[in-house]
């Protein structure tokens, strides 16, 4: 996980990390068992904190992941995704979004 995200060699000082953007990172964040587990934990957290109401769950998820409310288009698409494939799948997508990965 860290290896694909430019973790430096721990025996050597690295004052400024080389930053890369690669498909290998995309594959790690999409398919690694670590991320799948985290998506599951995220989904369980949403159920705990937002109950069973889907709209509230989506709102809570965006607040946690992006620090904001979802746009109408996003909320609608999220609801459709959750309806079809479940909360954990929706959470997996959030963990992969540019807005989650980058601090702008």
């Amino acid at each position: 996980m860290l290896g694909t995200h430019d973790c430096p060699d721990s025996t050597i000082p690295e004052p400024k990390r080389v930053v890369t953007t690669t498909p290998l990172q995309a594959l790690t964040l999409l398919n690694s068992s670590f991320i799948l587990d985290q998506a599951q934990y995220f989904a369980e957290r949403l159920e705990r904190e937002a109950g069973k109401n889907r709209t509230v769950q989506i709102e809570r998820a965006f607040r946690l992941a992006f620090g904001r409310a979802p746009k109408p288009a996003e909320a609608a698409a999220a609801a459709a995704l959750i309806g079809e494939h479940g909360l954990a799948v929706f959470c997996r997508a959030l963990l992969n979004a540019n807005e989650f990965v980058y601090v702008m």
Binding site: T4, L24, L27, T28, L30, N31, S32, S33, L36, A73, E74, A77, A78, L81, E84, H85, V89, F90, R92, A93, L94, N96, A97, N98, E99
Partner: peptide, 26 residues
């Protein structure tokens, strides 16, 4: 290449729909 394969418990359809949603967010 590590993690090249889609996880077993995620179907091709689920993956496609997930990527579609991700594309919208991005």
């Amino acid at each position: 290449i590590r993690n090249l394969d889609r996880p077993q418990k995620i179907s091709a359809q689920t993956d496609d729909d997930t990527r579609g949603f991700l594309r919208l967010l991005n």
